[in-house]
């Protein structure tokens, strides 16, 4: 709670510190109109009063009206954009977990063999190539040359392939590399030697004794990653012309759409905090040493 309050506060003041306001245009609006708009949105009030008014609104889940998308409340815009981003994000996350972790394990078990080199080569590419390159290449090849999918929008199921792929790229590569290095580290531990000395099968040694330990750093990364992916990627949403929340957010910064900026920031913060909390819960399930509230004698 405190974290979220702090983030909201900092965002609020930083936002007001940048030059320009919601109604600055290349072609300036008449002064009277600006004055009227400022009056309407209480922008003439002392900044502290604006701050407290906003905080009260926040506490009652009223994020205020959007300054630029007239007629829309901020929470409406978030509810409009988030499900779209989250849908694509969720697919990406499932792929990352279902592909990244097994690939990492296999690669660790074949350390320094061709399969490992191949996977790590791809993974290194995945980490270094930015998502807009993946997205642009995808559109060029599959939508442009081959015409298998639409270049933009989400009308058909096949339209999801591109955005999900572009979103998956970096994290998938990162997760498989992380799983691999973590697995290699764990396989060198004394308790793995103990398990082998006790005659346990290779399968049991790997999937019971090694994997649970190796997943600890992976889970740490997954928490914030899930939050980041669910809230959408500006780049991917822009390239594929998807009306997700990521695009709204960046646009709102450009527009100085104060309520929208702070609304999405707070929304992101809440999601992030929830994910970190979930990571902690997952930790305590995996590692008994971190179990909270229970005293170890």
């Amino acid at each position: 709670m405190l974290t979220i309050l702090l983030i909201a506060t900092v965002t609020f003041f930083m936002m007001h510190a940048i030059p320009g306001g919601p109604f600055s245009r290349e072609r300036p609006l008449p002064d009277e109109i600006i004055a009227a708009l400022n009056e309407k949105y209480h922008l003439n009030d002392p900044i502290l009063k604006q701050y407290f008014d906003y905080m009260v609104g926040l506490a009652t889940f009223n994020l205020g009206p959007s300054f630029r998308r007239t007629g829309f409340e901020v929470e409406e815009l978030i509810l409009l954009g988030f499900p779209i981003s989250a849908k694509i994000g969720l697919m990406a996350i499932i792929i990352i977990i279902l592909v990244g972790i097994p690939v990492g394990i296999v690669s660790a078990l074949r350390q320094n063999k061709p399969a490992d080199y191949f996977v790590m080569f791809i993974a290194t590419l995945g980490v270094t190539i930015p998502s807009f390159v993946v997205a642009a290449l995808f559109i060029y090849i599959f939508a442009g040359v081959l015409q298998w999918v639409d270049a933009f929008g989400l009308e058909r199921p096949s339209s999801y392939i591109g955005p999900v792929l572009a979103l998956v790229g970096y994290s998938l590569a990162f997760v498989s590399r992380l799983t691999r290095s973590s697995m290699l580290e764990v396989m060198r531990q004394d308790y793995i030697r103990t398990a082998r000395a006790n005659g346990l099968s290779r399968f049991k040694v790997i999937y019971k004794h090694a994997l649970k330990n190796a997943l600890i750093p992976v889970v740490t990364y997954l928490g914030p990653m899930v939050a980041a992916i669910l809230t959408g990627s500006f780049v991917v949403e822009k390239v594929f012309t998807i009306p997700g929340i990521g695009k709204y957010f960046v646009q709102s910064v450009n527009d100085r759409d104060y309520t929208m900026i702070i609304g999405s920031t707070v929304f992101f913060a809440v999601l992030y905090v929830i994910m970190v909390l979930l990571v902690d819960v997952a930790y305590s399930l995996i590692d008994p040493r971190i179990r909270l509230g229970k005293k170890s004698e």
Partner: peptide, 13 residues
Amino acid sequence: FQDPMTSLNPVYT
């Protein structure tokens, strides 16, 4: 083994 501190798997009873 030598080191009983690390020879048991920390995540199982």
